[in-house]
């Protein structure tokens, strides 16, 4: 496949396209790889030098309040086992009007519909806005080597943009002064602790990578819907699946939170023109959970397990 947007020739420099062109390319890449087509409001970009391996970068939101963080996900995906390609370290991207406050990476192997293994390497960067207005993330370049042929190539994502909006109100209430005083005390304590540790020559432990909201929800799902637990309550399991699914949809598509009913949530998803397949899955999952939670239905462990599987699938595929 000849893709004019690709940057994949040996040792050559990367071609960077404008964002508009990058979005146009996205649909094509998704068709090639059988992925779900993303809504037009999603800021993302992808470039594919060969059908065997692709890179994709996207943000978890199109706009971010000044006092919150956005997550940039860079995902390298190829057919075959993890050792099929050897990728260089992904350096933090060059950003403007943003600050990188955390990062993390993970690798996993999936099985596609034809039963073939697909390796996925995911890198996440937490980005904190500096000022109101537009913020930009320059292309991320990854050098990879085909372990069979020894040939090295270069992959590049597109430039992404993020709109920084007014900060959301913090829940401080009238006791803000007391909290501020407490924060100063904690900061002072931390400074003393740090001073003692550095004087004593004890190295500071490396900070834990910040979990993304998907990872937090996934951990919550695995904790709350564990059918092996002896005290597990089936009805509570359905409640957990429903609550986590709502949180996922609210976060993913910028909807209202847990105050929405199933009908309201589905209506908002349709208004946002979310992929119909995802809406159909969400409707089946939420309505079935409602029947068990409110309709006196006893529920079924195997069904709950299947619904939890659907939810886990959503949470582990942020490109949905």
């Amino acid at each position: 496949m000849h893709d004019p947007c690709s940057a994949g020739s040996r040792g050559k420099s990367t071609t960077i396209l404008p964002v508009v062109a990058g979005l146009a390319v996205l649909a094509l890449v998704n068709v090639v790889h059988g992925g779900a087509v993303r809504g037009a409001d999603s800021l993302s970009a992808a470039v594919s030098p060969a059908p065997e391996i692709s890179i994709q970068a996207f943000l978890d939101r199109t706009e971010v309040p000044q006092n919150r963080t956005a997550t940039l996900v860079v995902e390298l995906r190829w057919r075959g086992e993890l050792d099929r390609y050897e990728a260089s370290k992904v350096d933090p991207p060059v950003v403007s009007n943003l600050e990188i406050v955390g990062s993390g990476s993970s690798s996993r192997v999936e099985v596609d519909q034809s039963g073939q293994p697909v390796s996925v390497q995911t890198h996440r960067f937490s980005l904190k806005p500096k000022e109101l207005g537009m913020a930009y993330i320059e292309p991320v370049v990854v050098l990879y080597t085909d372990t069979r042929t020894g040939i090295s190539r270069r992959l590049s994502t597109q430039r992404l943009q993020l709109n920084v909006v007014d900060p959301v109100r913090e829940r401080r209430g009238r006791h803000g002064f007391v909290y501020a005083l407490g924060a100063v005390a904690i900061a002072a304590g931390g400074a003393v602790y740090y001073f003692r540790r550095t004087r004593g020559g004890v190295p500071e432990p490396a900070p834990e990578p910040e979990l993304t909201w998907e990872e937090k929800l996934l951990a919550q799902l695995r904790e709350e819907v564990d059918l092996r637990k002896s005290a597990f309550q089936l009805k509570e399991g359905y409640s957990s699946v429903s609550r986590i699914a709502r949180s996922y949809l609210a976060n993913r598509f910028g909807l209202g939170g847990l105050e929405l009913t199933t009908d309201e949530l589905l209506r908002e998803l349709r208004q946002k023109e979310v992929d119909e397949r995802l809406i159909a899955q969400a409707e089946e999952l939420l309505r079935r959970c409602d029947q068990v939670r409110f309709g006196g239905d006893a529920g079924d462990p195997s069904e709950l397990s299947r619904l939890a599987g659907v939810l886990e699938w959503w949470l582990t595929r942020p490109q949905l």
Partner: peptide, 10 residues
């Protein structure tokens, strides 16, 4: 419907 949902309440 033989049971009440949050939709009914709202």
């Amino acid at each position: 419907r033989g049971y009440v949902t949050p939709e009914d309440v709202k």
